[in-house]
Amino acid sequence: MVKQKLVLRFPSTLVEQPVIYHLVKDYDLMVNILRADINPKKEGRLMLELSGGEADYRRALDWLQAQGLTVMNLKQQITWNEGRCTHCGACSVICPSGALILSRPEMTVHFDEAKCVVCELCLKACPARAMETLLENAK
């Protein structure tokens, strides 16, 4: 069994393809959509969690890439620049997934990449701008 959070980027020519349908029907994967940003004739972005058999998962990734989609690991999409973080904790009530937490009683901020759903709310909620993204169309 594989369980992996991914970001799929669609070129504008591919946004109308029924990608999820093929992932389920042809590769027997379970799909949990975390966030989708798909608009007609524009580059699209889909964040999802895929789970299924190892071989099916590998074949599905090959197929996605063959279709012209860019596949990235969701974990690395939002990064915590610890040097900029002042450990104020303002992010901790804004982050909806519990990825950014204020540990008590230390009162220090921690970022758990695995829980991040790339909602990007932290990017501007952090006064010190310690949360960063590699996604071009973020902001």
């Binding site: 002042t86 904790g89 009530v93 204020l102 009162m107 006064p127």
Partner: peptide, 25 residues
């Protein structure tokens, strides 16, 4: 406030600091 939750008019409200207690320490 530092426990992470207060009660306001019977509603449980999560709290967050803006001032860094770790920095103060």
């Amino acid at each position: 406030l530092k426990s992470g939750e207060i009660s306001v008019n019977g509603t449980r409200v999560p709290t967050a600091p803006l001032s860094s207690y770790a920095g103060a320490r």
